[in-house]
Nucleic acid binder design. Structure first.
Length: 380
DNA sequence: AAGTCGGGGAC
DNA sequence: GTCCCAGACTT
């Protein structure tokens, strides 16, 4: 019968209408929105927002756009200047990706962002989500997105009873995202899904009573909003197998830091001299480094590598601090020493070795984990 | 499929 | 303290 629609289609139309009406009244006003066709702004914000909260990104976004207003400006920038604007935001690989991406857009696409999904996916740092974000937000194309907010929202809407990390779940959720996109307003629809997830369909205690789509939500109707989305079990915390050393110069209170190489983890950052226990599981060793057998061996190693004479002050902390990021498997022990004399040399594999005054150490200087180990408050 | 990559904010 | 955040990439 021509013109007839099924109940599913009718329900879908009602869902889109309720969501978009809510969004038009209650959507977040974010600085990278409402700039029609400016894919560059979308890309900058999306790269900054990877596993990073909106509130943390906003000041960085403004500084970045002010310094590099267009993709061409960014393409012609020095990488050091790009990284400088990223300092403190974390995941520094994203900054290098964004810089390389700008160069590719200028070199391969004449400075205009491609609309084609495959072309976008070929750009560094762009995966399925960001490609969909650019296509829907900047070009208003009916492309699906799937990210933290919409994973939670969609999982609750459909009553997904599998852990969301599973490949089968991901496939289901992507299909659901694609099926639901409003063909007339894909960009606003996708942003509405994210805003609803961020402000109403929150991880804990979602505000279902004021949710515009609660009558479409299987989790809400089934009393399952606290159990969906199901999460995979976390891997346990393992004991630390690395030790960092605080060598403080008594004359001025400055602390020995090493500047890491320009590649790999913490590239170009300063850190405390860090050593691995001999026999530590190689799989847990995140990078190369110095290896020691016991405390006496460690002291001799430090003296030989760094040109110091030192005396250990305190044993490795009984309760190591947490170290590492997402997996949280590593811990960092800290050893204090007394400096007897110095003829400082740069150890192999490091760019520099210096005694640095605590007042000079900021989040731009070294990682938060090590700064906390030093008990150095941040001055600004 | 699992591991890697940082840091801050909410609770 | 724990949990979570506009994911992408490598192995």
């Amino acid at each position: 019968m021509p013109g007839s629609i099924t109940n599913d289609e009718q329900s879908l139309i009602g869902f889109r209408k309720a969501l978009l009406e809510w969004y038009d009244e209650n959507g977040r006003d974010l600085p990278w929105r409402n700039h029609e066709g400016e894919a560059y702004r979308v890309i900058v914000s999306e790269l900054m927002l990877v596993q990073t909260t909106v509130a943390a990104v906003i000041p960085y976004y403004h500084r970045f756009l002010e310094r590099f207003p267009t993709v061409t400006d960014l393409a012609h920038a020095d990488e050091a200047d790009v990284l400088k604007l990223w300092e403190g935001l974390g995941y520094y690989r994203r900054a290098r990706h964004l810089h390389a991406l700008a160069k590719a857009v200028v070199a391969n696409h004449g400075g205009q962002f491609p609309h084609d999904e495959a072309d976008l996916l070929a750009l560094p740092g762009v995966g399925r989500y960001i490609a969909g974000a650019v296509r829907s937000f900047a070009f208003d194309l009916p492309a699906p997105i799937l990210e933290a907010n919409t994973i939670r929202l969609l999982a609750r809407l459909i009553g997904l009873m599998e852990t969301v990390e599973l490949g089968t779940s991901q496939k289901t959720l992507w299909a659901e995202a694609a099926r639901r996109v409003d063909p007339d307003r894909p960009g606003p629809f996708n942003q509405a899904m994210m805003d609803l997830g961020a402000t109403i369909c929150t991880p804990r205690q979602p505000a279902c009573l004021i949710c515009p789509v609660n009558k479409f939500c299987k989790a809400h109707l089934g009393g399952l909003t606290e159990t969906i989305p199901l999460k995979a079990a976390k891997s346990p915390l393992k004991p630390g197998e690395e030790v960092s050393v605080i060598v403080k110069r008594p004359t001025d209170g400055s602390i020995l830091l090493l500047k890491r190489s320009v590649q790999g983890l913490w590239a170009d950052f300063w850190e405390l001299p860090t050593f691995w226990q001999a026999g530590a599981d190689p799989a847990k060793r995140r990078d190369q480094g110095f290896e020691y057998k016991n405390l006496d061996d460690l002291i001799q190693l430090i003296e030989a590598l760094m040109g110091l004479r030192i005396k250990p002050l305190e044993e490795v902390q009984a309760k190591p601090i947490r170290y590492g990021v997402t997996t949280h498997k590593m811990t960092l022990n800290v050893l204090g020493t007394e400096l007897i004399s110095e003829n400082l040399i740069r150890p192999q594999g490091f760019l520099q070795a210096e005694f640095v005054a605590p007042s000079e150490i900021t989040k731009r200087t070294m990682s938060t984990a090590q700064r906390k180990a030093l008990k150095i408050p941040l001055k600004g």
